[in-house]
Amino acid sequence: MTPPSAASGETAAGGGAPDPQGRSLWQDAITRFRGHRAAMASTWVLGAIALLAILVPEFWPNSLDDVNWDYLESPPTTDNLLWFGTDVNGRDMFSRTFHGARISLAIGVLTTLVALIIGVAYGAIAGYRGGLPGDLMMRLVDVLYSLPALFFVIILVTVFGNSFLLIFLCIGAVEWLTLARIVRGQTLSIKEKEYVQSARAAGLSTPAILLKYIVPNAIGPVIAYVTLLIPINIIVESYLSFLGLGVQEPYTSWGRLISQGADEIGNAPWLLIIPASFLAVTLFCFNFIGDGLRDALDPKDRSR
């Protein structure tokens, strides 16, 4: 969000040894993130899941809707590569899990990105502008808030049709509201800080102040919320598909797999356990990565 503050990035122009000032917030953040063990481990785990989500649907011999008549609702087995077993219709759960991963991760990340961009921009502008326009902007948020979010998504999806792209646009368009509130609250306090006054006194334009001063300093709680939002969005998608508005058969998502698995919990627990564990692991990973990012983006945190 901040352009790398480059003045310091210009190394040792005065000649001489490369002194340690080639650091910008982002370069520094990367170094610090690397030092955060849990976050790095989570990044690897998540990377592995994402890689499988990309590769499995392309190259796995069992496709997601092939019916294995001999293996209806089979527990995990090595036969026919049915490592995760099959569902009631005898479809390969391994393939379905990673198909689902593809969609769930995409929805989780992309919707959150949409919410993040709208929410941060809106909240920062409303907070920084303040006064009547800022208040009006927030009243609008309040009004939108009072509509039940899911209901709103349903309306959007039914009006604009049921496409994959639209789903995450819609969810994102609803969930920026909380982010806008968080960012506005932060902005209100940050803009009173003397460094913002000093930026104004240095003749910086409003967009520059928002980008270099407000947003980077408001980012902590935003990241914390965003790491919660990703799993929430994955679950929202599952409600939608349950209502027939999300991804449709034969395609699937973790949310769908979990709700289908829940129906069979008595006879085929693996149908629930497998996608649910993936969702849980992913959720933890995002949380740790969020922690790592928050610490990494705070120059004060030198403890790790």
Partner: peptide, 12 residues
């Protein structure tokens, strides 16, 4: 302290 942006290096 509060008159300097905590997220920028002194150089920048």
């Amino acid at each position: 302290l509060s008159s300097l942006n905590p997220r920028m290096t002194i150089g920048s």
